[in-house]
């Protein structure tokens, strides 16, 4: 019995995942097509990248509520740079990343130096960004031909190269955002698993004081975790802008919670019980696959959040419930 529980904790999640993969394919053969695989992946990239970002802050026992709004403001800033300012798309990318770094840095300083609890600091930042993104365009969505404050029309447009980042495909099959996601996931997995930086980040999450007493500059690492979270969020924002092709003011909604849910589901993957890159990726793919498969089998769209909730609760039970500690 104990062995079974240990096995269930370690592999249960992957078995359920493999089972649903096979099940969906048997019931709906087109589920197994390559184009569907990539459409699942394309569907989860933005949330997946954000989940990787929030993983860093979860690892140091922190939290970043501002990831979704950071992505959203990068959509607005990219659009503003290209459409209103009529500048090269490279500026849009650079400015977005710079903005992501800055937001992360401010978050990190607020939490580490000003000692504001992480949830509060990043909640404040979330609202601040949500408001800030509306200011340049006076609350309106940014698109070619929009009316500017001086009465003229915006003449710039989204560069084709920029749109390619979101809508292009390699070999006419693999979407570019998926490639970006996979590369990021591999790099982050490697950093967390095989470098001293990853080791120290995990150690900080385990016992910050002990790490400090081991001579590590903990503050630097914690700030770095938030900077990485902000930067990765801005990359998600750039891809989102390229997918939408317009500075849409509503684009950030729902991203935060989906990403956090994926990262939490990741705790259950291989029973590691810790935030981890592989888990976040698997978590987000699992949700994407489940929703895709169930939609193919005509599950109504309004049950999606319910399904996500079931998966999250089940994963949390796997993670925490099945491994009761002794009294």
């Amino acid at each position: 019995m104990e062995k079974f529980v240990a096995f269930a904790i370690k592999y249960g999640f992957l078995i359920v995942m493999a089972g649903s993969f096979i099940g969906f394919g048997l019931m709906e053969p087109s589920f197994w097509s390559w184009s569907n695989m990539f459409s699942i992946l394309l569907g989860i990239t933005i949330v997946g990248i954000l989940a990787l970002g929030v993983t860093f802050t979860l690892i140091v026992d922190g939290f970043d509520l501002s990831i979704g709004s950071t992505a959203a403001i990068c959509v607005m800033i990219s659009s503003y740079v290209m459409v209103v300012l009529n500048m090269n798309y490279m500026y849009a990318i650079l400015l977005s990343i710079l903005l992501g770094v800055t937001i992360g840095l401010v978050n990190g300083l607020l939490i580490v130096k000003a000692k504001i609890p992480d949830l509060l600091a990043t909640l404040g930042m979330m609202f601040l960004i949500q408001g800030l993104q509306l200011i340049p365009s006076a609350g309106m969505s940014i698109g070619t031909g929009m009316m500017l404050a001086d009465g003229s029309e915006a003449e710039g447009e989204f560069a084709q190269q920029f749109l390619f980042l979101g809508q292009g495909r390699l070999f006419n099959l693999i979407p570019i955002p998926v490639i970006v996601f996979v590369i990021l996931a591999i790099v982050i997995y490697f950093v967390l698993q095989y470098t001293k930086w990853g080791r120290i980040l995990y150690a900080i999450g385990g016992n910050e004081k002990a790490v400090k007493l081991a001579g590590v500059n903990v503050e630097k690492y914690k700030i770095a975790a938030y900077v990485l979270s902000g930067t990765i969020s801005s990359i998600a924002g750039i891809l989102l802008a390229a997918r939408i092709g317009r500075g849409d003011v509503t684009s950030g909604g729902g991203l935060l919670l989906d990403a956090v849910a994926a990262a939490l589901i990741g705790y259950a993957v291989l029973g590691v019980k810790k935030p981890n890159a592989l888990g976040s990726v698997v978590g987000v793919i699992f949700i994407g696959m489940l929703l895709n498969g169930l939609t193919m089998l005509s599950l109504p769209y309004y049950t999606q959040d319910f399904i996500k909730g079931i998966v999250l609760v089940a994963a949390l039970i796997f993670t925490f419930g099945l491994s009761k500690s002794e009294i």
Partner: peptide, 12 residues
């Protein structure tokens, strides 16, 4: 109001 999801739905 999730524009990228709307695009994904077309592919699905």
């Amino acid at each position: 109001m999730d524009n990228q999801a709307e695009a994904n739905f077309v592919y699905q």
